[in-house]
């Protein structure tokens, strides 16, 4: 029971990170119908940018709690702006010229951009992992029980609280943005019928650019959290995290925002639970197997709308 509770906490934390990345996949798919395969690497760019800023301002776990929080807000802001600038540029250079081309063209271009970003960071920042001392430390003891093997303690670390709470806040802000603001309405309109949206005076190109910027900002925040949580980042972290988040987006129903959040949670939980009770080596296999099973029986994903052919 205690063990399960601990894994649940770990799973939700991991799932939050996946969910934040998955939103970028699902939004871009919703609005232009393509999978931005470079999105995982935009997450990586955000994470490496966060590392560089943390190093630059010399942030360590020794500072006061308020100081750390303020500094992290600054780090997050820089990482989000950098990643957004990257994603915006990628969209302009590699996807926009291919709009109206055959469907696979932007997809292949996206795979190309993924390699470009990875290699760019590898050459620029060197390939070795970039570790950092824990910055957000401490936590709470939730439960303690003596077992034959010694005491088992269920912990909720401050880092986990930070990740879960900030994810909840970001997702709430985001949902309001999409549901209640004029920008969100324009995005949903472009999702359904770009030509008609343009005829109502909506700048479709700009709306698409904003979508890429928003997705990148969330991914960069996830990148910062990932880097703080694991204490390390490098040029390759975007690959697996990206694939997992993409899986989460598909699992939840690609194009659906709540679906992306739910999918992230499910993937995170499956991974941690599998590692806890079965073999760690096969945790990725477990996550992808669940994806396959869901897709066989619910091709539209958990919360996706059934595909309706446009007339």
């Amino acid at each position: 029971m205690e063990y399960f509770l601990q894994q649940l906490i770990n799973g939700i934390t991991l799932g939050s990170i996946y969910g934040l990345i998955a939103i970028g996949y699902t939004m871009v798919y919703g609005i232009i119908g393509m999978i931005n395969f470079a999105h995982g690497d935009v997450f990586m760019v955000g994470s490496v940018a966060a590392f560089l800023v943390v190093l630059g301002i010399g942030l360590t776990g020794g500072s006061g709690i308020l100081m750390i929080l303020l500094a992290l807000v600054l780090v997050a802001a820089v990482a989000m702006v950098v990643a957004a600038a990257y994603n915006w540029t990628i969209e302009r250079l590699a996807y926009k010229p291919l709009r109206g081309s055959f469907r696979l063209a932007p997809l292949i271009s996206a795979i190309g951009m993924s390699i470009v970003l990875q290699e760019f960071v590898r050459v620029n920042q060197e390939g070795r992992p970039k570790p950092v001392q824990p910055i957000v430390t401490g936590g709470y003891e939730i439960m303690r029980r003596a077992t034959e093997a010694g005491e088992f303690i269920v912990r909720l670390t401050n880092m986990q609280i930070l990740i879960i709470v900030s994810t909840l806040i970001l997702m709430a802000v985001f949902t309001i943005l999409i549901q209640k603001t004029s920008l969100g309405r324009a995005q949903r309109a472009c999702e359904q019928d770009q030509k008609m949206a343009a005829l109502l005076g909506i700048d479709v190109d700009r709306t698409i650019s904003i979508t890429f910027i928003m997705g990148a900002a969330l991914a960069a925040f996830a990148g910062l959290m990932f880097f703080l949580y694991y204490g390390v980042t490098d040029f390759f972290v975007g690959f697996l995290a990206g694939i997992k988040a993409f899986t989460a987006a598909v699992l939840g129903g690609i194009g659906s925002l709540p679906g992306a959040m739910l999918g992230g949670l499910v993937i995170g939980l499956i991974e941690t639970m599998w590692s806890a009770y079965f073999t760690v080596e096969y945790k990725d296999v477990a996550a992808f197997t669940v994806l396959i099973i869901v897709l066989i029986f619910m091709p539209q994903g958990l919360l996706g709308k059934p595909e309706v052919e446009k007339v």
Binding site: S182, L183, R188, Q192, D193, K195, A197, G201, I202, V311
Partner: peptide, 23 residues
């Protein structure tokens, strides 16, 4: 052939049309 945003509400359809001034 009518091109409404069928997934959005009736009111939202009219709000989308006022996007620019709201932006």
């Amino acid at each position: 052939n009518i091109r409404l945003f069928s997934g959005m509400t009736v009111l939202e359809n009219l709000m989308v049309a006022q996007h620019n001034k709201l932006m």
